[in-house]
């Protein structure tokens, strides 16, 4: 099944590929190594950058298909899809991988319909077996794992951020850059405005390596400051349970769980969160889970790697102090 594994580039809308692209390229490189294929990047942007192209090579792309056109920004799936589909029709890739981001989850779904192939959305693992690719994806709010395979290529999948490892960057690797000519159709949708979130100085929830999260145990919106102080020290994003969001203590975009965001940080620390199944749905693929709760029976302790049974109002400031001491060394 030698062939190209395509990775769609997720960029920062300013010509720089994001970290999740390195994760996609890393996983594709490992799968291509097992199956005799090779890895290519597909970059759609209004404006790419030389540094960005170099970066993609170092992350493992031997070729970059660059579609650069002012009409590609802002993202609209009805514009991106026919462009990628046309290229895929000519180049017949073996697989097309995207990231679970607002743009690519829409792109890959539309693309699957246009190409008439299957899509494994929100995958967390892959395996090559007898020349076939098998994807693992959480289902039923992460209570079970479904292993699925495709009837025919290209194999379309989106990959959950922070789950897959990037390869060691290959310094100086230069990718072949192709600028294929494909039709860019006009869009019917017009962007009125982009409302940026108020900058918190903290990383974006779904991209953060460390997430500190608060629940009903915080007792009120004013107390989130305690978690923000901790977050600042360790460079974490601050999330919340639905109980805290529904109480109006945090905007909805910070909700973690089945009806919120799905995160897989290296470290998740929950404070005053009981660990309801719908909350676990959004964070159970975190690498290390820490829970601070005054109730020793709280279900979150069942999946926690480390737990402190205690009052968060006492424990959280102590942790902030300890981390400060550690990181100042």
């Amino acid at each position: 099944m030698a062939g190209a594994f395509w990775c769609i580039v997720e960029d920062d809308r300013a010509g720089r590929p994001k970290k999740v692209t390195a994760e996609l390229l890393g996983e594709a490189t490992r799968l291509a190594r097992q199956s005799g294929g090779h890895v290519e990047a597909v970059w759609l942007a209004d404006k790419a950058s030389e540094d960005g192209l170099k970066q993609l090579g170092e992350w493992g792309a031997v070729r970059v298909w660059l579609l650069e056109d002012a009409a590609l920004a802002p993202f609209r799936s009805e514009v991106w899809t026919p462009a990628v589909a046309e290229l895929a029709g000519k180049e017949a890739p073996q697989a097309i991988f995207g990231a679970v981001t607002s743009r690519q989850r829409e792109l890959l779904a539309r693309l699957a319909a246009r190409l008439g192939v299957g899509l494994a959305a929100d995958s967390v693992a892959f395996r090559v077996e007898d020349g076939k690719l098998i994807a693992t994806r959480p289902v039923y709010a992460g209570k079970l794992l479904s292993k699925i395979t495709w009837a025919k290529p290209p194999w379309l999948a989106t990959l959950r951020p922070n789950v897959f490892k990037a390869e060691e960057p290959k310094a100086g690797a230069v990718p072949a850059v192709e600028r294929p000519s494909v039709a860019i159709v006009p869009s019917r949708m017009t962007l009125v405005e982009r409302k940026e979130e108020v900058a918190t100085g903290l990383p974006e929830l779904t991209e953060a390596d460390v997430v500190v999260s608060g629940g009903r145990g915080l007792k009120g919106p004013e107390n989130f400051v305690i978690l923000e102080e901790l977050a600042k020290v360790i460079g974490a994003a601050v999330g919340a349970s639905r109980a805290a969001v529904d109480a109006g203590w945090r905007p909805h975009r910070f909700q973690i769980g089945q009806t919120g965001r799905t995160i897989s940080p290296k470290l998740y620390m929950g404070f005053g969160i009981s660990g309801a199944i719908q909350h676990l749905a959004g964070m159970r693929t975190s690498k290390i889970i820490v829970a601070v709760n005054k109730d020793p029976e709280a279900p979150i302790f069942k999946i926690a790697d480390y737990g402190i049974v205690g009052d968060l109002f006492e424990v959280a400031p102590l942790l902030t102090q300890e981390f400060k001491r550690l990181l100042e060394k």
Binding site: V117, L144, W150, A151, P296
Partner: peptide, 27 residues
């Protein structure tokens, strides 16, 4: 276009550690 190979339970997480004692020591 897609077929399920298998549905599986979650692999067990290694048992966690509860840090007990004084809050300051636990932290």
């Amino acid at each position: 276009r897609l077929s399920v190979v298998a549905l599986e339970g979650l692999p067990p997480r290694p048992p966690g550690r509860i840090l007990s004692g004084e809050p300051a020591a636990a932290a």
